[in-house]
Design a protein around this nucleic acid. Sequence first.
DNA 1: AATGAATGAGCTTTCATTCAT
DNA 2: AATGAATGAAAGCTCATTCAT
Lengths: 236, 236, 236, 236
Amino acid sequence: MIPPDIDSAAEWPPFYKATFGKIDEERKRLLLEMAVAEFAQKGFNAANINEIAKRSGISIGSMYSYFESKEALFLTIIDEGYRVLREALTEAEAATEASDKAGAEGIVSLFARLLHSSRDYARKYPELTQIYLDATTQGLAPLSGRLSYRLETITASLYQRSIAASKAAGTIRQELDAGALAFYLDNLLIVFQFSFASDYYRDRMRIFAGDSVDADDGEGLIASLVDLVRRSVAPG
Amino acid sequence: MIPPDIDSAAEWPPFYKATFGKIDEERKRLLLEMAVAEFAQKGFNAANINEIAKRSGISIGSMYSYFESKEALFLTIIDEGYRVLREALTEAEAATEASDKAGAEGIVSLFARLLHSSRDYARKYPELTQIYLDATTQGLAPLSGRLSYRLETITASLYQRSIAASKAAGTIRQELDAGALAFYLDNLLIVFQFSFASDYYRDRMRIFAGDSVDADDGEGLIASLVDLVRRSVAPG
Amino acid sequence: MIPPDIDSAAEWPPFYKATFGKIDEERKRLLLEMAVAEFAQKGFNAANINEIAKRSGISIGSMYSYFESKEALFLTIIDEGYRVLREALTEAEAATEASDKAGAEGIVSLFARLLHSSRDYARKYPELTQIYLDATTQGLAPLSGRLSYRLETITASLYQRSIAASKAAGTIRQELDAGALAFYLDNLLIVFQFSFASDYYRDRMRIFAGDSVDADDGEGLIASLVDLVRRSVAPG
Amino acid sequence: MIPPDIDSAAEWPPFYKATFGKIDEERKRLLLEMAVAEFAQKGFNAANINEIAKRSGISIGSMYSYFESKEALFLTIIDEGYRVLREALTEAEAATEASDKAGAEGIVSLFARLLHSSRDYARKYPELTQIYLDATTQGLAPLSGRLSYRLETITASLYQRSIAASKAAGTIRQELDAGALAFYLDNLLIVFQFSFASDYYRDRMRIFAGDSVDADDGEGLIASLVDLVRRSVAPG
DNA sequence: AATGAATGAGCTTTCATTCAT
DNA sequence: AATGAATGAAAGCTCATTCAT
């Protein structure tokens, strides 16, 4: 069930130096945590490497023995975050398949789970989500361009499989364009995710959907979105 | 038909100094154009005020006699861009009302027009769109917070009116949550817009929907999205 | 009675341009007042010519048609202030002579009057006094060096006359060194004056003499100083 | 004998960063020397940090790793200078006590020693003295306000002790106001000190006391001043 | 492997002065 | 004479990166 992309993704050479692979796990964790906080709060350009080192209790010299550059640290963080997000997504896929043997719901059910997963991820790792947003920025295009694979590749193939399965099961319209449908679903998904992590998108969500989202953790919104999606793909 | 927000929005004090209001129109245009290019390409933090001045053929001293700070210039640009985008949106609304007297299509028709408007805006002003994306970033939250109004406010009220009218006309389901529906539509809209302006989102769109978007200017994608939306709100 | 220095002092070419001599009296007064405030508060180097112009309601262009440079404005102010201070000193001298026909008190009486005059001047024109202090600074030596005469010249000759008269009247010791005595008196005088105009010297005066100076406007301190001086010069 | 103020003064947190405390003694000395020269010659505002760095042969980056700001460097210098001056003053007090066991002279003897100490300090460190003068300026009031203690506090308590002792020994009049007397003595002292360090006050001293001060290093003037002071406080 | 002092290019911003109108 | 937009050198300060220890 795990797509080949994922495995191969794991094989790309890391952005960190060999030294970083050997150090104490706790030291590693602390460094990454501090880096995530700094990059999330200030954005790549305004983030301060020396500050991260100081807060992690490691020397700036060590910092540069772990990472070639500020860029390398940033990309390492994104990579690490991707790994976790990837796992969350695959779990969602696996869970859908398990509970939906008959394929009665298919892609709609998967979408519902992804909404939950994304919201949970965004709330658990708001800073990582903020960093992803920053990375989509045009100014960071040269940087993001160095990422050897894209999370979108995984998500897209995940959608493709589920859409194909749903079509096969006849639970969605046959004539639906799989690419357009995936794009449609993922657009809804990522903005929803940002809405639980970034100040800007959170405010925006409140402007559109009202403050009720705070009360029910977005469950009402998820229900509405899933309902809209269900009807949009339903046959007949 | 024009919401009160729009008018009042026009009355906020500008972010530029009085001097900037008096200078030659061509000089003004060139300066803003160069600033937009710089901010779009590098992002707020990496953008270089001296570079903008040099490229505009004005002295750095003049620059600072027009704008209090780098921030003020950035906010001025966003404000100017908002004005144009606002006009595009209101035109779309007006056009919908004119061609849709019977209200047969209502919100779906409006959404279709907004997709076109947004795509056209993103292609005409890709750099402004990139700047908006940058402004949604967490690192620029303190900056964006200084914007006295939000484009979302206008868009949201625009959706609300159309949704109410469509409900009244009976062309969409009565039980739909207007807030959730607006959120759903606008999420689709903004990512679609980004997809025609930013390298990152353009690549992403291709991964999901394939390269055909380049061939037909996204018309196929628009058709698919509108169809999905139409079915998602259709009564019965 | 008026020393030749004073008259000739009035004949030095002014630091301002001819234009400044012709403008409206009120405009002139306002400009000088604003300049005094700015120079006093920030010191010569940190003072801002453009700010002075703005606050005076005159254009920076006019500013430079009145004064060659920032320096010229500064020196003009000092000159104007000197004129007033000079008058106060000569008044003090005249008053002493009038009330002290017998020369019974002589230099001591003059010193007492000068203390009062200086205190009053410092309280009436604290900003001018602050500017004099700034002008004694080493960093402004090249500037002060351009002053064609010194207030000290006047004060010194004023002391000389009075000391000579007192010696002639036999009210002070014959063997006193006139120069040293004048230096002694004037040192006491200028620090006393600064103490009523500058934050630093006011605080210092309170540290030494206690807060009582605030209650009685320094009268007690003046009495003490005069008494010390009287005994220091008394014959026998 | 050392007043509590002095000890506690030494315990205030320094204005420099920890790094500055660790560097090579020679490097430190050179930097401070160059900084003193620059600040003394140009005054705080006109002084140029980059210039100081260049002349010290250190990078501007190092400069800012030693001191938070231009202000911090300035205050560090004043602090260091105070330390030396403080020592000179306490030495003068100790010397007076040693040679004046009988208390025959008391405060007058102390004053004589202070005049010598101040002159010597001003001649040895003319630039530091010029900086103190600059610091008394109104424009630097916010800066001086950050100094956690005042040299005046020490000087004042030094005078108080000596005056009290002299009164106890009966060598000066009992009815003298200690505060006013201290103020009187210190006014004479500081202007005398400035007169050996600053161009302005040196010129002024010559105007009052003649050029003889250059020939005898001011010894004649000191003798005159001490004599005036002795008579001003003498009993009977 | 780790340290952290040192570096200096580069950035934003200020302001005395000029000059076309 | 008056205006005020324009100028640009210069200043304080930041921070990614290097390297001697």
